[in-house]
Design a protein around this nucleic acid. Structure first.
Lengths: 245, 245
DNA sequence: GTAGTCAGATTGTCCGGACATACAGATTGA
DNA sequence: TCAATCTGTATGTCCGGACAATCTGACTAC
């Protein structure tokens, strides 16, 4: 069957983007079934009244997302496996909300403190200089799920406790005009100390999932350093990843 | 200072790839310092005797890798933060070897077994049909580090125990002509059972880091399903990730 | 002095074409 | 019958050009 595709040249949205979105929607919706050929680029371009480079750009973006596979001499086809999303830089809050869990946050600490050596190194600021320290308890369905301790350099964002209780940190940062670009993460596990256990309603010595992360904006500045502990019975890290080529 | 760049038109290596590799090397080597402008595309193209689309393709590949940032009206500059690698689909064996640890593998099980419901679902094969089951203990410096249990569909690869002891599973699969494409991972933690503790020389109830993974090739077939447990005192997952744009 | 405006610079998008390269299947030869 | 070769098809690479969108900084007007 013929796929219904069309582009709006009067729209400010780039043509290749319009096309890639329609193709992605068709894949998501099942109109383009896994394994099916996409039809050659030349004809597709002619059918849409676009040039081949534009069509290629649209297809390439979906190849990069892992939705399509190109084979020289064969064609472009939809991958069989259900690709979800390739581990984006998302916040726990958004993840929980998307999963239908009603997330809640209890802000335990929100103040300026002198940076420890560890924090100073991670954020690239001078030791003992002032940094924001935010400690939060993240709940889902009223049950504690994670304990989040974050450090931010000063002057970057105005951290309002009320806002922190109603939304995620990443969303606040994006809203403040910070372009999140990359992050360096480390995921591990360890036994809960008595203090940690108490916070998360676990037993002392119970296994905890830990995550440390330094986030950078597009200028390469470190904009956030966080040390998080999760209850492994309530949370695990799930993600899809692609090979780099 | 002027960066020394040149391309070899007689080489079968694509021109844009030659350029991107030279730029990447210059960034890695420090010749291109973080924050420095790359010079505009037009002039760069003229200097190298290339067309602008070719130069753009080279630059774009580095932008995708997170090494460069483009700004309309400003230019292209090197990001400040030290980007390592964006979480490729690597094997524990390669990771350890790259880190200078001398990895060793002890194959505990290597046989065909009927697929359980869980395995059948992950690999997309019929329940009770034959699948390879491989259990391995991964050691570093003679100390147990991880227990790896993997399942593979039959007919895909010849699993030789000797080879499994001297290299990683992924390397074997790639050598067998399998193109690894994507994987779905889940990382969590739990307390060690007595059996698990014994295998890894830990105490019963000690925290363990767990990872489950289904790997797909470029046709979308599931080619491997694995359940791994790591000693968190010896291993943690470290990776860099980029925002998708 | 401050805000608005304008011009230059640079990347973003798009076009049309050309040739190279690799794959699959049909044809041909032994 | 089987293997080597040819051929068509589709993507991969590359070119040269055109115009649009956006950012920076300087200029101008109030």
């Amino acid at each position: 069957m013929q796929l219904e595709l069309s582009v709006d040249r009067s729209s400010p949205v780039p043509l290749y983007f319009q096309l890639s979105q329609q193709l992605e929607a068709a894949i998501e919706h099942g109109t383009l079934t896994p394994g099916s050929l996409l039809g050659n680029e030349i004809e597709l371009a002619a059918r849409l009244g676009l040039s081949r480079p534009t069509v290629r750009q649209a297809i390439q973006s979906l190849v990069d997302k892992g939705l399509l596979v190109r084979r020289r001499g064969v064609g472009t086809q939809v991958v069989h496996s259900q690709v979800k999303r390739p581990l984006e830089l998302s916040s726990l809050y958004d993840d929980l909300e998307a999963a239908g869990q009603r997330p809640a946050t209890r802000v335990l600490v929100n103040k300026l403190v002198p940076a420890s050596a560890e924090v100073a190194a991670a954020l690239g600021v001078a030791e003992d200089s002032d940094v924001h320290r935010v400690e939060r308890l993240r709940l889902a369905h009223g049950e504690p799920m994670a304990y989040l301790c974050n450090f931010l350099p000063p002057g970057l964002i105005d951290l309002d406790t009320d806002q922190l209780e109603t939304t995620g940190l990443y969303r606040l940062m994006r809203a403040a005009g910070i372009t999140l670009h990359s992050a360096r993460q480390s995921i591990g596990a360890r036994a809960a100390t008595t203090e940690e256990a108490e916070r998360l309603a676990e037993e002392t010595g119970a296994p905890l999932l830990t995550m440390q992360r330094v986030t950078f904006d597009d200028t390469g500045r470190a904009v956030e350093y966080g040390t998080h502990t999760y209850r492994p019975t309530r949370y695990s890290f799930e993600f899809q990843l692609l090979v780099r080529t």
